[in-house]
Design a binder for these strands. Structure first.
Lengths: 245, 245
DNA sequence: CAGTGGTCTAGACCACTGG
DNA sequence: CAGTGGTCTAGACCACTGG
């Protein structure tokens, strides 16, 4: 980092300077030198230490934040992030129970609870005509006050007419539905996505953060009960399964 | 975007300018105006259209690229990305067969095939003493020449002594292991991660891109055969399961 | 208040692609 | 060659946090 390099140029064959700074920070964390919650040097400090502009130091910190390695807070500083909890995959468990089983406190935020009309996707999933009335809820579930699941759910009003009258702060949709329309079948799809703006805001993470997105269609003996989209911040959740053959 | 705004300032209460540009691009894509493979305006064009500096236009394009919405190529331009394929979850299927089942061409790149010593994590997973000799392979699997899985695998040399002598361009590790040490049990963990630099390079995606990471420990009657880490680009892969109760 | 991160500018040089 | 995206600078103003 000592030789003079002209603007916008990188030494041939070497990595970009922001990448060198990222590597340095990762190395400190992996060696244990910088533990979780350790406050890493500020943008200005790194810019000085590595003889780069603040924008370049900033890029290193921003990318590591996007990658879940660091956490930034305006006015406070940048800190080393910490590891993750875990959930179940082959069962359809109630998130509140999962959290309680970990000995953590559970809470939620109800963002929407309304009747709406079925989009093409929702109508196909629930086996209803397009434009039919469906119930729609959006709830954020919190583990020790930290958002851990964004739940968007469409429910068949014929099978669960009382859905909108429930108090979901007391019992989650999963808990309620399991009681009134026992589960006989579930289709699940799992994928990784970058959070969009809506999800990012709800989960208090940056747009683009890697998230586990689970689509789940649940059926009871009477038909398809609901269609849910569950989004978990990648660094705050895992799914596990033990298979036997 | 017409009023003069001083440097570094945003109109109070409004979103940042890069966010406005992102929203505009998303709107074009969602309305169908810009289909997959459509070439979006260049950084300079957007900078001119929105009266911002190129760095600000660039930020909008970069973030959308990180989020899997766009694909960028130096010298060519920036293009609208397209939707995704899908795989299976409850079985342990051979990726080459999955790809063939979709009617696509399969190929792979063998990055490593070596003997090494077991780290703490690997020794625990395989039930060996720390520092024991283990076989290690790193292979990238391609679907129609597009990287779709980064497979890093540690194998127990006692149970599969011929592992390093195999030609994995002809039969994948999964295929070979299934033949010589039939599967009796598998532990699977699924999570979302942002790609690190190694994985990003191997999968030809940007560091930080959302990926599905699957940890899988496979056992046969004789013991734990191998411990694998499978990383899929989030926008190129899905896992599905149908559960019955 | 000084220090932090967040947004933004107007330039620069570079590697890479197609024609 | 002109046009594209990739890296980088040296400044600016801002909102926010703690003391």
């Amino acid at each position: 980092m000592s030789s003079q390099i002209p603007t916008g140029t990188t030494e041939p064959g070497s990595q970009p300077r922001y990448a060198a700074i990222k590597a340095h920070i990762r190395a400190q964390i992996e060696s244990g030198e910088w533990a979780a919650h350790f406050r890493v040097p500020s943008e200005n400090q790194l810019a000085h230490d590595f003889s780069v502009s603040r924008m370049t130091a900033r890029r290193a910190l921003s990318e590591l934040t996007d990658e879940g390695v660091l956490i930034r807070s305006q006015g406070l500083g940048t800190f080393v992030a910490e590891p993750v909890p875990a959930g179940s995959l082959l069962e359809v468990r109630n998130i509140a129970d999962e959290i309680a089983a970990r000995g953590h406190s559970y809470a939620n935020r109800i963002l929407k609870l309304e009747q709406t009309t079925a989009s093409t996707e929702v109508s196909v999933a629930l086996g209803l005509a397009e434009g039919s009335a469906v119930y729609h809820s959006v709830i954020v579930h919190l583990d020790n006050d930290l958002p851990i699941q964004f739940e968007e759910r469409y429910t068949n009003p014929t099978l669960v007419p009382e859905y909108l009258q429930q108090d979901f702060t007391a019992a989650t949709p999963n808990e309620y539905l399991t009681r009134v329309a026992p589960l006989t079948e579930a289709d699940t799809t799992v994928e990784a996505i970058g959070a969009d703006d809506t999800v990012g805001e709800a989960l208090e993470i940056k747009s683009g953060t890697a998230c586990l997105q689970i689509w789940r269609r649940t059926k009871s003996s009477a038909g398809t009960v609901s269609f849910a989209r569950l989004v978990h911040p990648g660094n705050r959740y895992r799914l596990g399964a033990q298979l036997r053959f």
